[in-house]
Amino acid sequence: MIASFADPGQRTVQAPFGRALAALAEERPEIVGLSADLTKYTDMHVFRDAHPDRFFQFGMSEQVLLGAAAGLAEVGLRPFASTYSVFATRRAYDFLCLDIAEPRLPVTVVGGLPGLTTGYGPSHQATEDLAILRGCPNLTIVDPCDAVDLAQIVPALAALDGPSYLRLLRGAVPSVLDEYDYRFELGRAVAIRPGRDVLIVSTGLMTMRALAAARALEADHVDVAVLHVPTIKPLDVDTIVAEASSGGRLVLTAENHTVAGGLGEAVGAALALAGRAVRLGRIGLPDEFLAAGALPTLHDRYGLSTAAVVERVRQDLSGRAQRRGGESS
């Protein structure tokens, strides 16, 4: 079963989260790491090996993991607590919500395998973590695109005096954004690529796919802009509304998450509330429990692969052309 979302031959960086956290902890002695029997699987082992006296292994007990993270923060430490996204959100949400978010504690909950990044089946596919957490007051939510993003996000979250949730990309993580003039800024959406015909508003690893699709569509003379939205909450509504309502482009959102309750709905609501009549298409996972299998096959099947994004843009463009033709005749 293939479990990497990196494309064959793509440049990758090993364990960028663990490296960034271990490096930052050199200067910040109050940073501590916690995991619930998923240290090796969330790249937390890099931190553990560098700072063994500041790492706490909780065994497979996600509720205590997040409760204890809150307790550590209450007494002046700066915890990063890692498990898989499904367990942080489904199993331990009450603890995240009331122990960490309500008191605005500086804790970063690190969720591995966000969205569809494993073929292991519904128990491990966190297809609705953003939907759950967007409803949590006080919580900052970040969905990085790649290793470049992650390396900048870790210090930004550590500097934040409040609770945050990081959608972790682990293992060999693609490096893409260093090819563009990109800098992560908490709470800011960033236009990574201009384009006249289509705007893709994307988050997480779907920005990588949107960029690849944009390049592929150049051959069709289709000009695709990509607006990367790494911070899901608070959402950069101003930039998103301004971009989406300018230039009369086809607008698509793209997220590694169910279409229910994620970026697509957030953007739709932002546009409606701003009074902008923009026709919006959503690229995301269907509102269903997904199959198990090889990850590349699943990304094709559920519309997240570059090829699927390219196809979707073509279809939506031709649908739009037909509608326009119909209107004018």
């Binding site: 499904v86 199993r91 292991y120 089946g121 519904p122 128990s123 491990h124 198990a292």
Partner: peptide, 18 residues
């Protein structure tokens, strides 16, 4: 499937994984 699912396999009473 590699991770047991009640909906996939006759005789599998519950869906596991978590």
């Amino acid at each position: 499937p590699m991770s047991a699912m009640a909906s996939s396999t006759p005789g599998m009473e519950i869906s596991g994984g978590s």
